[in-house]
Amino acid sequence: MAVKSGETKRPMWLNVFGISCLILFGVATFLGLVTSPPDVNQGDLIRVMYAHVSVVWVGFVAVIMTAIFGMLFLWRSKAMDDVWAVASAEMALIYFALAIIGGMTYSKPTLGVFWDWDAKLTLTALEFALLVGYFIVRGLLDDPKQRARISAVVSIIVLASLPFNWMAAKWFRTLHPSKSFDMTSSGVKDTMAPIFRNILLFNVAVAALIFIYFLFERVRLGRLEVKAEALEDSIQPRSEVVRV
């Protein structure tokens, strides 16, 4: 478990990847703000949609990844599974926060209110609270195994609520608009003009790349943390926690 010299440095390929993400983010923003035509009903407000929808979609993926690595940890207790889980959980929390902020920005001028407790928004608030809980739980527990196990269970609970959020506008009556792309019994529904759809998909792809960049960076740091913890333990064995 020795830390080799140079191992603490961020590798070159990750730097290049990060800078590429930044450039692509600029392109995606240009496409959304300049290239995209206005919407026939919403006008320029449609531009908020690109930011809002892309962070939501990637946020959902981040939650799914957190739960998958949580389940892997429960299955085989590998420290690195927990590292991957935390890395994606941090991104899930940030993307959910961005989704809520962007959603409120978008909602006020189009729907008329910043926030309302419809099924979709309520579930999003619940999931955000659970993600915050995930980190509170981790902060409270010192034993790495126990910390990883309990937070994994929290992430699985968030995952269980995700399909309800995804399908909320279809299953319940919500203020939030329905999905423009949808699988229906009569095939794929797509009610978004191709120019909007293409720019949206580009924005989603860039949001995903930014997620991947921070995921790799956080896993790199997490791996060092695991090694540092092991080193500390080898010098001075962890004292038993006294329970009152």
Partner: peptide, 12 residues
Amino acid sequence: LLIKHSEVYKPP
């Protein structure tokens, strides 16, 4: 008065 707009988005 709140708006529940449709999921149809198209340029003018």
